[in-house]
């Protein structure tokens, strides 16, 4: 348990982070994605359930695409939390395993960890779940390119490591 003052500080930083995050990434805002926790090389985000995001109108199960966006955003956030100083990053690849259907009507959480950072590439893995990380609905593994220096263009346009 962290001290109340540390906790208050964390909550304030979280609010600030979410404001930035929504300001900066329109698609995250459209999906209602929010960061709920962060740490060193670690991020946790929530995708609120919405009928707009349903893939199967018969069951009300969320579309895989919404889960992909959640995982892409959460994995990217985990990389930012690992960087010694902020640089632009770009997704190189992202693999999603759909382990079971998400429960209709329930928010989906994602937890991602950047477990290796090199000069050019960050490696991340994560899971999507409802309330128990040990019972995930999806698993993700991704690699991200880091920009080398300001003004040298997007790494997404220069994908070779």
């Amino acid at each position: 348990m962290s001290a109340p003052r540390d906790r208050a500080e964390q909550v304030a930083r979280l609010a600030q982070l979410n404001r930035q995050f929504h300001l900066v990434v329109p698609h995250n805002r459209a999906l209602g994605l929010e960061v709920v926790e962060f740490g060193d090389g670690d991020a946790r985000m929530r995708l609120p359930y919405s009928r707009d995001l349903v893939g199967n109108p018969d069951t009300g199960v969320l579309h895989g695409g919404a889960i992909t966006s959640l995982m892409d955003a959460c994995c990217g956030a985990a990389v930012f939390m690992k960087l010694p100083m902020p640089v632009p990053i770009a997704t190189l690849d992202l693999r999603i395993d759909y382990l079971r259907p998400a429960d209709p009507g329930r928010d989906v959480l994602a937890h991602a960890t950047c477990f290796r950072l090199t000069r050019n590439v960050a490696f991340v893995r994560g899971v999507a779940y409802h309330d128990d990380e040990a019972d995930p609905v999806a698993a993700a593994a991704g690699a991200f390119m880091l920009a080398t220096a300001p003004g040298r263009g997007s790494p997404r346009t220069r994908p070779s490591p």
Binding site: V25, A66, T68, D72, P88
Partner: peptide, 24 residues
């Protein structure tokens, strides 16, 4: 649509939006 943007600085579409297009 503007709401598909993931990186407004470039600007670039969100990786998740492109993933959704491919999966669909």
């Amino acid at each position: 649509a503007d709401m598909l943007i993931g990186n407004p600085a470039l600007p670039a579409l969100h990786g998740g939006a492109l993933g959704a297009l491919l999966e669909s």
